[in-house]
């Protein structure tokens, strides 16, 4: 478009029309195609967030900050942050530590498609269905406990649903495939000739991982960690269905939901949603700050 502007402009005397000047900066009819999508997202994503933010400072009763004061002084609310962290952080770390070595193996596999198809299943079926299946499968009469008892590993059925472990298992079932596929896509993005070069120069597998893959992979792993963590942190259906929503797995999203749809206190619910967003942001920033401490270098991975 800039070529059009430069050839047409001199013919039309000194001052080109507004349309041409806009076209020169890249704004023309085609750029306007962005408007509907952008306006839609501003109306339904940005505006509600600002609205919720403002609403959280206009509580049903009390001063401007009373929602936040209530949240942090009432242990019934304040504990939800710790409860959610206690679920989300171990799950994310577990998923990531399992995903990295497995992705390194699978990378060498020629027929990855069957495996990845299997792993996409729990993601597409969603947490509700996984929770529904878990209730019976991991229950005291389910196949899982039965098999362990037949093998003689346990004498009594282990309680794996309606407690902390139920939520943990459900988040591994839906979270591990997500973490794994994301990690795999970062690992396959690294040029294999880099590893071959290191191997030719005599580097052992551990050294190749330490000096070639690790620095290249770190930015991708930081993003994977953040995305997995944020998903685990906002766990909702499985915390209700296979957890103990009144005690051990009363996560922050349950508190927000109850305020909004059981107490009809939208102001308090917005405040909790803002706290949820803020705590997620703190962890994400901490991860990126930590990454900067461990490794300084180009942000893009080896794909160039």
């Amino acid at each position: 478009m800039s070529t059009v502007a430069s050839t047409v402009a001199p013919i039309r005397a000194a001052a080109p029309s507004l349309r041409l000047r806009l076209a020169a900066t890249g704004i023309d009819g085609v750029t306007l195609l962005l408007l509907p999508a952008a306006l839609f997202l501003i109306a339904l994503f940005i505006y509600p967030f600002i609205y919720g933010f403002v609403l959280s400072f206009e509580p049903k009763q009390g001063g401007t900050l009373s929602n936040y004061q209530r949240f942090f002084s009432d242990s019934y609310f304040a504990n939800t942050v710790a409860t959610t962290m206690k679920i989300a952080l171990p799950v994310t770390l577990l998923n990531l530590t399992l995903a990295i070595p497995i992705a390194f193996r699978v990378r060498l596999l020629r027929r990855q498609r069957l495996l990845t198809t299997f792993l996409v299943l729990p993601i597409t079926l969603g947490t509700v269905l996984v929770a529904e299946g878990m209730l019976f499968y991991f229950g005291p009469q389910g196949w899982f406990n039965r098999t362990l008892m037949t093998l003689g590993l346990i004498s009594h059925p282990v309680r794996l649903v309606h407690n902390y472990w139920g939520v943990l298992i459900s988040l591994v079932i839906t979270g591990f495939p997500f973490t794994f596929l994301l990690t795999l896509s970062y690992i396959t993005g690294i040029d294999p000739s880099l590893e071959q070069a290191a191997a030719t120069l005599g580097a052992k597998p551990a050294a190749r991982f330490r000096h070639i893959f690790w620095p290249l992979l770190l930015p991708g792993l930081a993003i994977t960690f953040c995305l997995s963590f944020v998903q685990a942190y906002s766990v909702f259906p499985s915390a209700v269905l296979v957890g103990e929503p009144a005690a051990a797995t009363r996560v922050i999203s349950i508190a927000a939901y109850q305020s909004a749809f059981e107490d009809y206190d939208y102001s308090m619910a917005s405040a909790i949603a803002m706290i949820m967003a803020a705590t997620q942001l703190i962890v994400v920033l901490a991860v990126f700050a930590g990454r900067a401490l461990v490794y300084r270098g180009p942000v893009a991975s080896g794909k160039g």
Binding site: F45, P48, Y51, G52, F53, Q231, S234, A273
Partner: peptide, 21 residues
Amino acid sequence: LLFLLPLLVPPITYGIPMATV
């Protein structure tokens, strides 16, 4: 960034203010 955020922020976080609106 406007197009990335709704994919990065989990639905339950932005869903509650959105449902309110």
